[in-house]
Lab assay of single mutants.
Amino acid sequence: VTTYKLVINGKTLKGETTTKAVDAETAEKAFKQYANDNGVDGVWTYDDATKTFTVTE
């Protein structure tokens, strides 16, 4: 299990959150659900070296 980070650069929501997941794909699903629940819809990137997803509106 690895800790992944999400950086949110939204129009109305900015911040960070983390999740523990077995792989990046599982973390991405959780983060996309989180973003959707919070009304954030943007461009996604992922940096494997830092295990960090970024979504920018």
Rank of each mutant, 00 (worst) to 15 (best):
W44P: 00
D23G: 04
Y46V: 01
K5D: 02
A49G: 07
T54G: 03
N36L: 13
D41F: 10
Q33A: 07
K51H: 11
T56W: 09
N9I: 12
T54S: 05
V40Y: 04
G42L: 02
V1H: 12
K51F: 09
K11C: 06
N38L: 08
Q33L: 09
N36I: 14
E57W: 12
T2I: 12
A24N: 07
A30I: 10
K11D: 13
G39V: 04
K32T: 08
K29V: 12
D41Y: 09
T17M: 15
T19N: 05
W44H: 01
D23S: 15
I8S: 03
I8Q: 02
D47V: 11
A30V: 12
K32D: 02
F31A: 02
L6K: 00
T52F: 03
Y46G: 00
A30F: 12
G39M: 10
E57C: 03
L6N: 01
N9M: 13
F53G: 00
T26Y: 12
A30H: 15
K32N: 05
L13N: 15
T2W: 11
V43N: 09
T56N: 09
V22I: 11
K14M: 13
A35W: 03
T18V: 10
Y4W: 09
T12V: 15
T56H: 06
V1N: 14
T19V: 10
D37Y: 08
K20M: 07
K20F: 11
T45N: 09
K51W: 07
T26I: 08
V43Y: 09
T17A: 15
D37S: 07
Y46C: 01
A30L: 10
T45G: 11
L6Y: 01
A49M: 13
A21I: 03
E57Q: 05
T54I: 07
K14E: 07
K29G: 06
T17W: 15
V43Q: 09
E25F: 09
D37R: 11
D37K: 14
F31M: 03
Y34K: 03
E28C: 05
E16M: 04
F53R: 00
Y34E: 03
F31C: 02
F53T: 00
T50A: 09
V7R: 07
T50R: 07
T50M: 09
K29N: 14
V1E: 13
L6R: 00
G39S: 10
T26P: 02
V1L: 14
A27T: 01
F53Y: 13
V22R: 08
L13Y: 15
N36C: 05
T3C: 06
K32V: 13
T56Y: 06
Y46S: 01
A27Q: 01
A49Y: 12
T26K: 08
E25K: 15
F53D: 00
G15S: 10
A27H: 00
V1A: 09
N36M: 13
G39T: 05
V7F: 08
N9L: 12
Y34D: 02
N9T: 08
K32E: 04
I8W: 08
W44R: 00
K20Y: 13
N38S: 10
Y46H: 02
A21G: 03
A21Y: 05
Y4D: 00
K32F: 10
T12A: 11
D23I: 03
V43S: 15
T56D: 10
L13R: 02
T3P: 05
T19C: 05
T52S: 04
Y34P: 00
K5N: 07
Y4Q: 00
V55I: 12
A24P: 11
G10F: 14
D37C: 05
T50P: 02
A24K: 15
V55M: 06
Y34T: 04
T12G: 11
G39N: 15
T3D: 11
T54C: 04
A27I: 01
K11A: 15
D41K: 09
K5C: 04
A30Q: 13
K29C: 03
K32P: 00
W44G: 00
V40K: 02
G10A: 14
A27P: 01
N38E: 14
N9A: 07
T52E: 04
T12D: 08
N36K: 14
T19L: 12
T12L: 13
T54D: 03
F31V: 02
K51D: 03
T3N: 07
K29M: 10
D41A: 12
V22Q: 11
A27S: 02
T19D: 03
W44Q: 01
K32I: 12
A35H: 01
G42R: 02
W44V: 02
T17P: 03
D23E: 06
A35L: 07
G42W: 04
F53V: 02
E28I: 11
A27D: 01
T50I: 10
K14L: 06
D47I: 08
V7C: 04
F53N: 00
K14H: 14
T26V: 08
V22A: 13
K14D: 13
G10T: 15
K20R: 13
T45L: 14
G42V: 01
V1Q: 11
T17G: 07
G15N: 14
T2C: 05
F53K: 00
K5P: 00
G15L: 12
A30S: 11
T52Q: 09
T18G: 04
I8H: 03
K5W: 06
A35K: 01
I8F: 14
W44S: 01
Q33Y: 06
D37G: 06
A24D: 09
I8G: 02
L6F: 06
E28M: 11
V40C: 04
D41L: 07
T52P: 00
A27L: 00
V55E: 00
T19F: 14
E28S: 06
T17S: 11
A27V: 02
W44Y: 02
A30W: 14
T50L: 12
D47T: 05
K5A: 05
A27N: 00
T52Y: 03
T2L: 08
V40G: 02
T45A: 11
T19H: 07
T54L: 06
Y4C: 01
E16A: 04
V43M: 07
V55T: 03
G10D: 04
K14I: 11
E25W: 08
K29D: 11
A24M: 05
E16Y: 05
T54A: 05
G39F: 13
T3F: 10
